[in-house]
Computed example of a mutant assay.
Amino acid sequence: MQATIKEYRPKPAARKDGFWRALGLPSRGAKLHEALSAGISYKVYTKLTEISGLESKELARYVVIPPATLKRRADTGYFKPAEGDRLYRFAEVYKSAMDLFEGDKAKAKEWLLSPVRGLGGRRPVEMVATTAGAEAVLDLIGRLEHGVFA
């Protein structure tokens, strides 16, 4: 009897920009800058809550958008540039966490909401409101992906 060797065939990879397309945002470059400067749509916020599995109030707290402001943005349909920038930073960190956990949304969310030793015991979601904080989280994710723990 001859053993059959099953050939490994990876599943077709999702488009690299699929996450950003689902959000309705460009991932980088001049188009992203234009979108943030013009004010991103409130729909991006609702899609981000759906994708991340966070409650609307939770996400607003992490990106420092007070409830009254969130309601005004829902009414006008757009966020101001600084608010949109904070939403983009959260999306970038969330996407990187999902990539770290190979697309497992539950594990990515759990990691983002848990104290992390590499961030001095802070939760990654607590750090996304500032550029420096988001960069620290992204740097840690990069180090974890490459097996560098120091």
Results as ranks from 00 to 15, higher is better:
138 L>Y: 05
33 H>G: 00
134 A>E: 05
140 L>C: 02
12 P>L: 14
88 Y>W: 11
150 A>I: 14
16 K>Y: 10
127 M>S: 01
70 L>G: 06
138 L>I: 08
125 V>M: 01
57 K>G: 15
149 F>G: 09
110 E>L: 09
111 W>G: 00
30 A>C: 09
89 R>V: 06
121 G>V: 03
45 Y>I: 03
30 A>E: 15
142 G>V: 02
35 A>S: 14
22 A>M: 10
136 A>T: 06
144 L>D: 08
45 Y>E: 02
82 A>L: 15
44 V>H: 00
148 V>G: 08
40 I>L: 13
27 S>W: 01
83 E>K: 01
80 K>N: 14
35 A>E: 14
13 A>M: 14
62 Y>L: 02
103 G>Q: 07
149 F>L: 11
25 L>S: 04
27 S>V: 09
37 S>T: 14
90 F>D: 00
141 I>C: 03
73 R>M: 11
96 S>Q: 08
2 Q>C: 10
85 D>M: 10
107 K>R: 09
50 E>M: 13
134 A>F: 00
11 K>Q: 13
44 V>P: 06
71 K>H: 15
130 T>P: 07
32 L>Y: 09
101 F>P: 03
51 I>P: 00
76 T>A: 13
29 G>M: 03
98 M>R: 12
128 V>L: 06
95 K>A: 14
8 Y>V: 15
116 V>M: 00
19 F>G: 08
90 F>G: 01
148 V>W: 11
108 A>L: 03
72 R>L: 11
48 L>V: 06
26 P>V: 04
32 L>S: 08
12 P>V: 15
117 R>P: 02
126 E>G: 04
49 T>N: 07
134 A>I: 07
30 A>S: 13
58 E>D: 12
107 K>A: 05
80 K>V: 13
52 S>Q: 06
71 K>S: 14
79 F>Y: 02
42 Y>L: 10
128 V>W: 00
128 V>R: 02
109 K>M: 01
42 Y>W: 11
111 W>L: 04
14 A>I: 03
138 L>V: 07
41 S>Q: 11
33 H>K: 14
63 V>Q: 05
79 F>W: 09
71 K>R: 15
83 E>D: 12
96 S>G: 02
122 R>L: 00
112 L>C: 01
38 A>E: 10
33 H>F: 14
67 P>N: 12
19 F>A: 07
95 K>M: 13
77 G>L: 04
64 V>A: 11
19 F>D: 09
8 Y>G: 13
90 F>C: 03
87 L>N: 03
121 G>K: 04
31 K>W: 05
46 T>G: 05
136 A>W: 04
150 A>C: 12
125 V>R: 00
142 G>S: 08
96 S>I: 06
101 F>T: 03
63 V>A: 09
104 D>L: 06
69 T>F: 11
29 G>V: 02
125 V>F: 06
124 P>E: 01
48 L>F: 06
94 Y>C: 05
113 L>A: 04
87 L>D: 01
128 V>H: 04
98 M>P: 11
27 S>C: 07
111 W>M: 05
137 V>E: 01
28 R>Y: 11
67 P>I: 13
40 I>Y: 07
9 R>F: 06
21 R>A: 15
